[in-house]
Amino acid sequence: MAGEAGNEALAFHPMDQFKVEPLFDVALDYFAVSNVTQWMGVTVLCIIVLFVLGTGKRAVVPGRLQSVAELAYSFVYKMVEDVSGHDGVKYFPYVFTLFIFIVFSNFIGLIPGAFTTTSHIAVTAVLAMMVFLFVTILGFIKNGFHFLGLFWVSSAPLPLRPILALIELISYFVRPVSHSIRLAGNMMAGHAVIKVFAGFAPLVLMSWIGVAVTPLSILAITAMYGLEILVCFIQAYVFTILTCVYLKDALHPGH
């Protein structure tokens, strides 16, 4: 094979970027320091830099970092207030934590070579299950047995109600599944597509046809990257706004 050496050096699997590996030569158990730890640590550091050091001066006329922090604060605050109502504001720190963690993980995952923590079902499933359990328990605490009224659509004709109740029940339990897979799937899909295009980029080193393929694939990578920047934000936004919607259902199950 002519391009054997180049092939071997440049060959990579589009899913390889999602591999979880221990950083040191240890078994991958609970406490092993892995690349997950590394990139989550970067995320936490960035959040602390932005929200603690950035707002340290408490300036009335904000600097750059403080403006961004205030913008994020008001953005999420307004979202919680608009969607969940005034009694949802109590849970604002929780929603804000979710939003900030997801948005930072997504964007840090876009750095070439970085590991995207939110592209893993394990991570997003935990996030979604936390929301699901939190909302369900909160619903029962706040409304008691009335919370089940969420499934009994009183505006529908009586014979339809049991069927609707079944559908509502199923859709309620599908919530965490779709909630988590939407985020992980979006992140994974975008990154995998970029890697697939990247796999075609070095073709110019192997054959003349690469003259046409390589610029195309680099263009495609650039375009996908732009789309990914959009998707990173929108998915964090969607995750958060769905959390707010579920929170609203828990606080006011009547409507």
Binding site: V20, L28, D29, Y30, F31, A32, S34, V36, T37, M40, G41, T43, V44, T97, F101, T117, H120, A122, V123, V126, L127
Partner: peptide
């Protein structure tokens, strides 16, 4: 890899 990820996720959160 799940236990490791979940553990560090919870720590980070």
């Amino acid at each position: 890899t799940f236990p490791n990820q979940i553990f560090w996720l919870l720590v980070a959160l």
